[in-house]
Write a protein that binds this DNA or RNA. Sequence first.
DNA 1: AATGAATGAGGCTTCATTCAT
DNA 2: AATGAATGAAGCCTCATTCAT
Lengths: 227, 227, 227, 227
Amino acid sequence: MQPPEQWVEELLKLNDQDEKMTDKQLRIIQAAVETFSVKGYAASSTSEIAQKAGVAEGTIFRHYKTKKDLLLSIIAPIMSKLIGPFILRDFTKVIDAPYSTYEDFVRAIIRNRLEYARNNLPVIKIFMQEIPFQDDLKKHFKELVSKHVISRVIKVIEQYQQKGALINVPPLSILRFTISAVFGFVMTLLILMPEADWNEDEEIELTIQMIMHGIARSADDQALQNE
Amino acid sequence: MQPPEQWVEELLKLNDQDEKMTDKQLRIIQAAVETFSVKGYAASSTSEIAQKAGVAEGTIFRHYKTKKDLLLSIIAPIMSKLIGPFILRDFTKVIDAPYSTYEDFVRAIIRNRLEYARNNLPVIKIFMQEIPFQDDLKKHFKELVSKHVISRVIKVIEQYQQKGALINVPPLSILRFTISAVFGFVMTLLILMPEADWNEDEEIELTIQMIMHGIARSADDQALQNE
Amino acid sequence: MQPPEQWVEELLKLNDQDEKMTDKQLRIIQAAVETFSVKGYAASSTSEIAQKAGVAEGTIFRHYKTKKDLLLSIIAPIMSKLIGPFILRDFTKVIDAPYSTYEDFVRAIIRNRLEYARNNLPVIKIFMQEIPFQDDLKKHFKELVSKHVISRVIKVIEQYQQKGALINVPPLSILRFTISAVFGFVMTLLILMPEADWNEDEEIELTIQMIMHGIARSADDQALQNE
Amino acid sequence: MQPPEQWVEELLKLNDQDEKMTDKQLRIIQAAVETFSVKGYAASSTSEIAQKAGVAEGTIFRHYKTKKDLLLSIIAPIMSKLIGPFILRDFTKVIDAPYSTYEDFVRAIIRNRLEYARNNLPVIKIFMQEIPFQDDLKKHFKELVSKHVISRVIKVIEQYQQKGALINVPPLSILRFTISAVFGFVMTLLILMPEADWNEDEEIELTIQMIMHGIARSADDQALQNE
DNA sequence: AATGAATGAGGCTTCATTCAT
DNA sequence: AATGAATGAAGCCTCATTCAT
């Protein structure tokens, strides 16, 4: 299991490419993430963040021109991370693997996204809170999702439909349904009911089973029961 | 179809029981909902609300002691509304109805909640934005959901499981899965992709089908295809 | 002699037409004028002005949206006042009066402007300090002067030139020379050397004499002396 | 015609006497003059000056203890330059020259000061803007003017009065009148109406003529016209 | 000498809330 | 009940200045 500040390293990965982050800058980001995720962006004050980071308030503004810049430096980089697996170049190989199944695909996604969400919970909270109010980011994110996730996954789904592995309904509906189930699973586990002690692996398999076969007992099973 | 301010009447229904709302009070609530839902609670100013409502700044505070009171007067009443169908006294009759099915139950819920969400979108947005930051409300809501939704629906699910209509997995997982699918459907339709022209009835049935039978093509169907 | 706050009434004259000024607003303006004229606009703080006016700092911003608005509310109205005499409708009558002379005209201007400057010294100081930095005001003021002062007075000068009362040189040069002498006189009396006890009436007449006849002793006089 | 940064050399002349200016120091002064003259001292930030000069923020404070020191290093040296011609040791010789006239004296001053003002416009602007707020400098400048300009020129004027070349009025009034005309001329040419294409030499002679003989047409001339 | 990150005081402005009318 | 002027705390941000490198 990762240390609680795993998301710090995630952020660093991105920013390191450009420039080195100073120690103070790091502390500022940490304090900002903590504060924003607990109180929300608008209700957090820069003075509180400065205090929590152990720097002077002015120091924040040396690194981030405005409070909003500070927010964006947190939100912007995770937008692509959020849909990370779908951006990979070899993503389409997913379906070329001869014995691969949609089920395996969903299993990979669900494990990967759960892992990522667990490691970046505060930042993700901030993202979900603020994206409705940041019109430009919202637009950008929609485009990202549209281009990398929706269009690609729909192709995957169509492939499996042609193989006869998935039902013949609009691929977008299958996508929406799959994402709902995955998203609902991750959110329940991490945010809505984190205190319940889920047997994680079992729940994952259960969720995949429900996605693939639904929750209705099959006629065969029912027949079996009635014997 | 309802007029756009349907949610106003929804709010009135609740408050009417206690006291009459004056015209000004109504305009204040309307302005507050509009503003909060667009900018978020913390980023909205009472003066802007007053202006939009056409009342003096002081008037707001004659009706609501603080800005937070104003927020609560919007959020609090919809908490029970959100889970409305599950609070009905005769809810348990649902499963007593001899020929009722879980499918019909889900269909009823999905239609009812979509209708409600459509009519109360701004208020629901505010609720979802602010509930993470209002600890007391959050706790209260969790209790409400736990008591009225989870416990009751789990009983329903167990009934159907005993009838052999639902698979034998933890009822909580079935509940989570069902809610994820319904919630994901409603959100996609109303918020994420409202501009796509969904064939609503079809999508509802499709969603129910996927909930019940999943997205994997059945062995029989596949056999059929291969003939 | 006027009370020291004569300029307050001057400002009131203009603003009264629109709306009543509250007592606090008046105190704010007074404090602002006093502070701006002593320290300059940029070096004056709104908190100091508030304190001097005996109001809360926020009160300033209820009446003036920004600090600059406060400045403009002081500067803008005096722009037209500064060139007041030239805006009068019956200004052109000046030269129709049969026995009027350019000398009388200059005498009227010099007395009137000295009076006005004396009564509005702090505001005029602010005006002269800030007009170079307020591009829009500067442009506006130049247009005002161009339209009402320069063009009109040049006509006056041309009239007197045709009568043979003024020398035949470019009217603009005569204007510039006259204004320099008048402006220099007023500034010296009120700002540069206010402590010297000028015999005001004598100096006025002397200045007019120098404007009209220069400072060289006439040939006749010199002849007289040599006899 | 001089290069635009003529005033830089002017400043150097003075400071060179003391110490060598480094290249960076020079760039700082240049940037400071440019910024101060456009925005005013109080509205200019040291960081902007540093940036414009291409040096680090701290470098400014290595050469000038405070921002005000920087201002003073610009303003102080030009105070004596402004009244330069009057400080010359051999100034009093002016009037000993047997055939010299007050007119020639004024001509020399007007040409010299116009030249100087043209070459030092930005610095002069800063001086005029800030001198009212720098009490010690103001006092010092007044003393300089009083000692070197007023007292000396008054002696000159008295000499010419005794010669019968100037009218018998208080010399201070003649001085004030002369300076007003010269100052007004230079300011109009360089600042108030720089875009008008003045015929400079003609205007100079015209101004001198007006100073000496005023703007009223002489009786003789009028008689001539009427014939 | 030069740098530039860091500081913290202070600036302008917003805002929820109060209260006399 | 309603108003809106007044408040002053708090917010974001700027800036002159310092100091370790």
